[in-house]
């Protein structure tokens, strides 16, 4: 495994330049550049704010908008990593057929792209919180958020790797993942707060949801300005370690069979 990591590192110039290219492609097509791809979550936040505050009469938009935007950025990062991770071996087939690179590089390429976008939208959340609350609480708590951001990236890479191998074996995995993500989105406290589930006696839905764990680790402290409890870190770390172990195990198990499956 160490050998694998070493190989990933020695080809860093290769995949990093591809990540750079992916980002350039993504942002070049539009006049607004990066702003354009942020417009989607921003617009979504605006819509939900209007809907929730006028129809459901929920709390004011000043607290709801950053809450929603923070939740959406975490969710979008995980979902994008996994759905684009699905097709990563298929998109990079020509490299796989040409060069024996460590296969962890390909999900890394897609996840790194999504991660950079994630960082940008998180900074928008922090700016929004600072402006709306007129204080720097969310900036001051950043030290407690950064380890969680690292963890969610490792988690996303692991799940993307698993999804990539699944897609090689079943070619409709991406489709299934997208359908599943729709369901998952509504069972996760992203557009509503956790209380809603707790009040209905459905706390277990949130407790068992790995996405919710990362929401509490990243969105929680940013909104409240308080670092999360140590037990949350332990849970997050365990979850990340287990998925990472699964991903590494899958690579060790299937990497030699990959070329015959494409």
């Amino acid at each position: 495994m160490l050998h694998h990591l070493q190989a990933v590192w020695s080809f860093r110039h290769f995949w990093m330049s591809l990540v750079r290219m992916d980002l350039r492609q993504r942002y070049r097509r539009s006049v607004l550049g990066i702003g354009w791809s942020l417009l989607n979550p921003l617009a979504m936040t605006a819509v939900f704010c209007v809907v929730f505050s006028s129809i459901l009469g929920s709390s004011n938009w000043r607290t709801y908008a950053p809450f929603l935007l923070a939740g959406m950025s975490v969710w979008d990062f995980i979902r994008n990593s996994v759905t684009s991770g699905c097709v990563t071996f298929i998109h990079n087939e020509s490299y796989i057929r040409q060069c024996p690179l460590p296969c962890g590089i390909y999900p890394l390429r897609t996840v790194m792209g999504a991660a950079i976008h994630f960082m940008i939208s998180l900074s928008v959340v922090i700016v929004l919180l600072t402006v709306l609350n007129m204080n720097f609480a969310s900036v001051q708590v950043l030290w407690a958020v950064l380890p969680s951001v690292l963890m969610v990236m490792v988690f996303a890479w692991s799940v993307a790797t698993l999804a990539a191998f699944a897609t090689v074996h079943f070619h409709d995995t991406q489709h299934l993942v997208e359908v599943g993500a729709q369901l998952w989105f509504f069972t996760t406290p992203i557009i509503y707060t956790r209380d809603l589930l707790d009040n209905k006696g459905l706390s277990w839905v949130a407790d068992l949801n790995p996405v919710n764990l990362f929401l509490e680790l990243i969105r929680g402290p940013l909104i409240s300005g308080q670092p999360p409890e140590a037990s949350l870190y332990v849970q997050g770390f365990t979850l990340t370690a287990v998925t990472l172990g699964l991903a590494i195990g899958t690579i060790a198990w299937l990497q030699n069979k990959l070329i015959f499956r494409l």
């Binding site: 110039h13 290769f14 330049s17 290219m21 060069c99 690179l101």
Partner: peptide, 14 residues
């Protein structure tokens, strides 16, 4: 850019 990607793939450094 493609020269660059290919060359990195072959193990060149910047």
């Amino acid at each position: 850019d493609n020269i660059m990607y290919r060359a990195y793939l072959q193990g060149e450094t910047p």
